[in-house]
């Protein structure tokens, strides 16, 4: 419990710092609170992204029994990019009629339907095979990415510019109207996962042991994959695709958790996820005035860690 308490204390301190540091208005005035409120939106986004990404990655590692995968291998990030590109391609920059909440809901719905169909189909019948599914995910991801880049090539330069800005994940640009919906979804999934944390401990032991101990393995895996898909798409909708952030957080959590049980790993992963995002936001926004770079820097650190872990495992 100590590491979790440490991360939560650090996260709280960072959150307060982000709210009040370098606030141009004098403390206690109306303007001061308006600025704090605006910054609260960023904090809410950070909280949801941290929970969504860390829970999604830990769950994904558990059901694939592999700790060097990231959920983006299933092609969700690419699907997000493709759907954004397609929107601009088909409806132009204005995308009339599809702005704000309806657009975001449609986006999430598209990804959830895609996930459910893909996993439901791949995991039904006798072909139930996790490796096949991952392979299909990789291939589909490449297909989505190439389609998206093809569409991007035939956009007008101004449309492409707008699209690039949309795809560029940024915490400060998150839509506050989406927060309540995303919050409900993420909280619901978090409660469900936490209530089944002991089953996830068993699932981590693989199919044979899980079935032997009485778990309905196939159903558990499909449900978990859909949950991962929902979490990843909620996070992508808010701040754009993030490939290595979840991996960074989960890897650190495995390292510092007192045990490998989900009761140990999940809270710590969330705590580390919060600290990482909050610290990066604070440093970049307030010390370097480069808020847009937060996800880029975290992806850079996460990607570097990914390479280190990969090389170390390879050398063993």
């Amino acid at each position: 419990m100590v590491p979790v308490a440490v991360t939560l204390a650090a996260a709280t301190a960072l959150a307060v710092a982000i709210l009040v540091y370098a606030n141009p208005a004098p403390p206690g005035t109306g303007a001061f609170w308006i600025i704090v409120q605006a910054r609260l939106v960023s904090l809410g986004t950070i909280l949801l992204v941290a929970v969504a990404q860390s829970v999604a990655t830990v769950l994904f590692h558990t059901i694939t029994a592999n700790r060097i995968l990231t959920p983006s291998i299933l092609g969700f990030d690419a699907l997000y990019v493709l759907s954004q590109t397609a929107l601009v391609f088909l409806f132009g920059v204005s995308s009339t009629g599809m702005e704000g909440i309806p657009k975001i809901v449609a986006q999430s719905a598209l990804m959830i339907v895609f996930a459910t169909l893909l996993y439901g189909w791949l995991f039904s019948g006798r072909r139930a095979n996790l490796h096949l599914m991952l392979l299909v995910g990789v291939v589909l991801g490449i297909a989505f990415a190439s389609t998206a880049s093809f569409l991007q090539r035939i956009l007008t330069p101004s449309e492409f510019d707008v699209l690039s800005a949309r795809l560029f994940g940024s915490i400060s640009k998150a839509d506050p109207a989406y927060l309540p919906i995303a919050g409900l979804i993420v909280a619901g999934i978090l409660v469900y996962v936490w209530s089944r944390r002991r089953s996830y401990d068993v699932l981590a032991l693989g199919r044979d042991v899980s079935v032997g101990l009485g778990l309905r393995y196939r159903r558990e895996v499909v449900v978990s994959l859909v949950l991962v898909a929902v979490l990843v798409s909620v996070s992508a909708t808010m701040v754009g695709p993030m490939t290595f952030y979840g991996f960074l957080v989960a890897t650190l959590a495995y390292q510092f958790a007192p045990g490998d049980r989900h009761a140990d790993v999940l809270p710590l992963a969330i705590g580390i996820g919060l600290v990482t995002l909050l610290a990066a936001t604070f440093v970049l926004r307030h010390l370097f005035s480069a808020a847009g770079l937060v996800t880029v820097i975290i992806e850079f650190v996460g990607g570097t860690l990914f390479l280190i872990v990969l090389l170390r495992k390879g050398l063993r």
Binding site: R198, D201, A204, D260
Partner: peptide, 17 residues
């Protein structure tokens, strides 16, 4: 197994059903 388990943790899983 991906997780590092002690003997007792492993045997405890036997009680899961």
């Amino acid at each position: 197994f991906m997780a590092r388990l002690t003997v007792e943790q492993l045997v405890t899983f036997g009680r899961f059903p």
